[in-house]
Design a protein around this nucleic acid. Structure first.
Lengths: 210, 210
DNA sequence: CTATATCTATACCGTCCGCTACATTAATGG
DNA sequence: CCATTAATGTAGCGGACGGTATAGATATAG
């Protein structure tokens, strides 16, 4: 940020003593484990290493912090999804790769189990309706981008005539969300991988488009 | 309950003024909508039409009430599952029927959306670890009974040699749980049905056992 | 009848919730 | 230097939480 005359505008007042990005990463981790409502501000401040006033000054309130955490999380996922979609030669290979990667990510040991976007707004009271609809939109966006990749494959003649690409995208979204739940229940990456391979057997085969 | 001498033992004290079974059904409905932790005792007493002391006298505490509600819910599901497993001529038809029925049940208008067993212990704090492990066991039992039906089909030569029936049961359990999440996000029975049919395309085909 | 047992409603307990008032500290602007 | 701005730690706000003490009401036992 600069002044109109181009001279640098230094931040006034006492400078923040914690790393905002690092604190946000800690918040993501906590929300990932316990979801939105079950995570208390005490949990957050403890994990972030700050006191409540610092949290509220830097992030607004618990809901804004959650939405910012979810936004960063989704952006990371979106990038790896886009990469898989662009690199895979066909829609089938794209979906296979996404599910295989998901098997490792959902049950990996470097993160909490499951998917923040899928799980964290279940079992919330009516007070969190706003959060719930926000996450539902994000999930819908992920499904839409999957459908777009499948449509691209269909346009390239990879799928039988008359294939319902929307239903296909919804099926694989359903499998992914189910895998997230299985991960929560302790499924290993290996078992999730077997489920992913089973799901790929449902890929439409038969008469191809001209 | 009778006395040793066979004379009926009437209940002493003031009789209960509400229908315990009906109250339990109301509690199931509330837990079904909001899960375990997000449902408050106030929500429960309001829906059940009783005051806190009556709830605690009749059901113990919130956790015992929840587990009793889940137990009744699961017993109902178990019966319809057993019926489908017994009536279907093959394992494939049994699974197809279960998924088709699930499409209607999970998104039907006569109940809350989704599945009490699948969703209601997500996003709980560590204080509910006992409830979470109880439900995880119940989910494992449902998956085990699905595997048992598939094994029966495998023993009857319905499946290719070397089919991993455990992985197959886990795949369809995953699809079911994913369908429950989709139902929460507003999927219609029709769309869930399309997902169920897609999942059935993954049923193992090929060389059958002798 | 009295004694006992149990359900009922009111009113409240201590604890944790999300959030903030306040005084203090540490930086810049002039 | 002093005024201004903003982040910090402490301490606590009003309210909702799960759960209960208590007193009154209503049944059976004898």
């Amino acid at each position: 940020m600069k002044r109109a005359n181009g001279r640098p505008l230094k931040a006034r007042g006492r400078p923040r003593e914690f790393d905002r990005d690092a604190a946000l990463e800690r918040a993501i981790d906590v929300f990932w484990r316990h979801g939105y409502e079950a995570t208390s501000v005490s949990d957050l401040t403890a994990a972030m290493g700050i006191n409540p006033p610092s949290l509220y000054a830097a992030f607004g309130d618990k809901e804004k912090l959650f939405l910012e955490a979810v936004g960063r999380y989704q952006e990371q996922r979106r990038q790896s999804l886009t990469k898989a979609f662009d690199e895979a030669p066909t829609a089938e290979e794209a979906v296979r790769r996404v599910l295989r990667e998901a098997a490792g990510e959902l049950a990996g040991s470097s993160h909490p189990r499951g998917c923040l976007l899928v799980m964290s707004d279940t079992n919330c009271s009516d007070a969190s309706a706003h959060v719930q609809s926000d996450l539902a939109q994000r999930r819908a966006a992920m499904k839409a981008s999957l459908k777009a990749r499948i449509d691209r494959g269909a346009a390239a003649g990879e799928l039988p005539r008359g294939t319902d690409t929307g239903a296909l995208a919804e099926f694989y979204t359903t499998v992914f969300q189910g895998m997230a739940m299985q991960a929560r229940d302790g499924a290993t990456p290996k078992r999730l991988l077997a489920t992913a391979e089973a799901a790929m057997r449902a890929w439409p085969r038969g008469v191809k488009r001209s």
